[in-house]
Structure formats: C-alpha cells, structure tokens
Amino acid sequence: MRPNLVKAAPWLVVLAMFLLWELVCAGFDIPEFLLPAPSAVWKVGVLQFEPIMMHATQTFLTTLAGFAIAVVVGLLIGMAVGSSPLLYRAMYPLLVGFNSIPKVAFVPVLVVWFGIGTVPAILTAFLISFFPVVVNVATGLATLEPELEDVLRSLGASRLDILGKVGLPRAMPYFFASLKVAITLAFVGSVIAETVASNLGIGYLMMSASSSMNMPLVFAGLIVIGVMGVVMYELFALVEKRMTGWAHRNPNGAT
C-alpha cells in the first residue's frame, strides 16, 4: 500500500493541481484571455498539435545542443579549476560574476554577433547551464582526501594519474547531479532566447500567441516546456543512478 502511494503521489499532485485550476476557472467564471482552463488548453493542444510539436522539436534540439556544449566546456573548466588551487582562486570570482549576469540581458549581444535564429538560442542555453557543471566538477575534485593523494603520490603517481584514478571517478556523482540541474536550466536559456530573438521554437510560439491574445496556446506552450524539462530531468536522474550507484547506496547495507 505505502510504496504504491509513494509511486502514485507525484501523479496525484499534478492531477489535483489541474482539477483545482479547472474548478477555479469555472467557479469564478474567469475569462479565457486571462486564465484559460486546462480543458481549453487541452483543446488548443489537440487542434494545434502539429505546429506545437514542430516548435517543441526546435526548442528541444536547441536545448540539447546548448546543453551538450555546456557539458563539454563545464567538464573541462571544472577539471582545470578543481585540480589546481591557483586556477581555483584565479577563476572563481570571474565565473561567479559571469553567472550573476541575467542571460536575458546577454541575448541582444548574441543577436548582434550571430543574427536572429537558432545560434543565439543554443548559446544562451549553453551560457546558462554550464556553471553548475563547472562548480560541481570542481568541488568533486577539490574535496579529494589529502591522505588518499599522499598514498598515490608516494607511489610516484603523476597528477594525471591521480586525476584519472581517483579525482574523476570521485567527481562523477557531483557531475551527474549537476546534469539534472543543467538540463532544466538549458531549457530556460533556449526559451528565453527564442522569446526575444527567433521565429522558431516554443518561446517564439508563446510570444506570437500572446500578442494575439491566444492565451490557451500560451499555456499549452508552457506545459510542453514543463513536460520536456521533467522528462529530461528524470532521464538524467536515471543515468546518474546507473553510473554512480556506489554513491547512492543504502546505509543499511542492502544496495
């Protein structure tokens, strides 16, 4: 009984939210151009299924491209920063400062450089999502136990040996945890850029729908983004579990 409840709980919560939403819309007679009821959103979703899927695919691929760059760049910077105390000190303020800039403010710059379209969206997704990867990989490497390092160094291990045998495997749980965060941020990045400067993607679809007061379509777009985010998050949570099971062991001994 209990395990089933735990499994069903997230679905029940989502269902309850939609129900409440529907009831509020019907009960207070809220006009559709302010807050469309889920049923209205569903209707639009079915009617406009093909254009929505087309834009969603665009957003999805854009996000994945930005995310892929973020993983590679984040891993490289994280490895550099995490394995050298000097680089750590030197680079961290710059990285934090850069991360503090709202990326929406950076989109116009990207548009000037690369024009309107997919490239700024990919880059925004990359810029917004690489930071957690850097921080996590760097933390994983920098918190290596000094005794363990001594054991290896006394054997004559090079820095590369230590990184490969201990540092990176040890940083993997941090790395995979950061992927979950990064993929959802990447969606935020690509949608922001599409809203400001694109004529493709869910962001653009929502922008144009809201300018013609087609609120059900706007909400359909929001829900599609949310669903994509959850699916990708769960996917990477699964990958994390598969790759780093040793770090998520049950303290009672059973794995």
């Binding site: 054991v151 054997l155 004559g156 201990v166």
Partner: peptide, 18 residues
C-alpha cells in the same frame, strides 16, 4: 622526491568506494 618503494596506510582506510 616521492619514493616508489614505500607503502602507506592511514587511520582512515581511504578505500575507493567505486
């Protein structure tokens, strides 16, 4: 510099969990 004829063990076993 680091000698290679040495083995070391500490209070913490420091085994690699993976």
């Amino acid at each position: 510099g680091p000698l290679k004829i040495v083995g070391m063990a500490f209070q913490n076993a420091n085994l690699l969990p993976w």
